[in-house]
Design a protein around this nucleic acid. Structure first.
Length: 242
DNA sequence: ATGGTCGTTTCACGA
């Protein structure tokens, strides 16, 4: 965060309850923090050094689909300066035919309905939908499509759900600055997946028209994936005009 | 078709 002068940070799959956050450290760096941690599995958070004026919680999980410890996925919205930022952790889906995939598709559909409502209410709204989408929208977003033939993340319904949100007015502001193929945001921990660049592009920032106009650059910080103890996802950074 | 890694919920499980 210090190296890249991050104004607003969104985190997903934090595996932390609200009471487990290192808030003092973030606050010492000048950040306000909003968290939405369900349990030790899944949570989301937003840290902002440009202020948080409003916090919205939405799109919680659907426990009827199974064990709520693992099915819970969350979305946390916060108004940071003039931008409404959402930290999204889209459900994983687990496997084709698994009820968790139905839950994932329902969750994305509900997000799409809400996102369209936000645009209808205010055409000048600056909204960023940022996080782990757990969808690889294009074939080039996985290192080897043959090995994903019977997998989630690339299935037509998942891709359709993602594209529906794009087509409703939320542009992917990251891909134009980080074109593929071979450009990923996630590499599994299995041996040499990162070293061999056998990854997936699952993390995106989608922006409303007014926000997308302000974006000047995007960057995937691969170096953060290299160290011992790193997350399996790399940070995705977006720059905007003031 | 399987297994490979990681961290926590541990000799199991979801990512």
């Amino acid at each position: 965060m210090e190296r890249h002068e991050i104004d607003v940070l969104t985190l997903q799959e934090t595996k932390a309850r609200d009471d487990q956050w290192p808030l003092m450290g973030l606050e010492a760096m000048g950040y306000e923090v909003a968290t939405y941690g369900f349990n030790q599995w899944n949570g989301v958070a937003i840290a902002s050094r440009v202020g948080i004026s409003d916090v919205r919680r939405g799109f919680e999980g659907m426990p009827e689909y199974g064990d709520p410890r693992v099915t819970e996925a969350r979305a946390l919205g916060a108004t940071c300066a003039d931008v409404q930022v959402w930290s999204l952790y889209v459900p994983n889906g687990r496997a084709l035919g698994d009820p968790h995939l139905d839950y994932k598709l329902d969750w994305l559909a509900r997000l799409g309905v809400a996102a369209r409502d936000w645009l209808r209410g205010d055409h000048q709204a600056q909204i960023a939908l940022a996080g782990d989408w757990n969808v690889a929208p294009r074939d080039e977003d996985v290192f080897d499509m043959r090995s994903f033939a019977t997998s989630t993340h690339v299935s037509p319904p998942e891709r359709a759900a993602f594209h529906a949100i794009v087509e409703s007015g939320y542009a992917d502001v990251t891909r134009p600055f980080t074109p593929g193929p071979g450009v990923f945001t996630y590499w599994d921990y299995y041996r040499e997946r990162f070293e061999r660049n056998r990854g997936m592009r699952l993390d995106f920032v989608l922006g409303s028209p007014a926000f997308a106009e302000r974006v000047t650059a995007a960057f995937i910080d691969r170096a953060e994936r290299a160290g011992k103890g790193a997350s399996d996802h790399a940070p995705v950074i977006v720059d905007t005009e003031p």
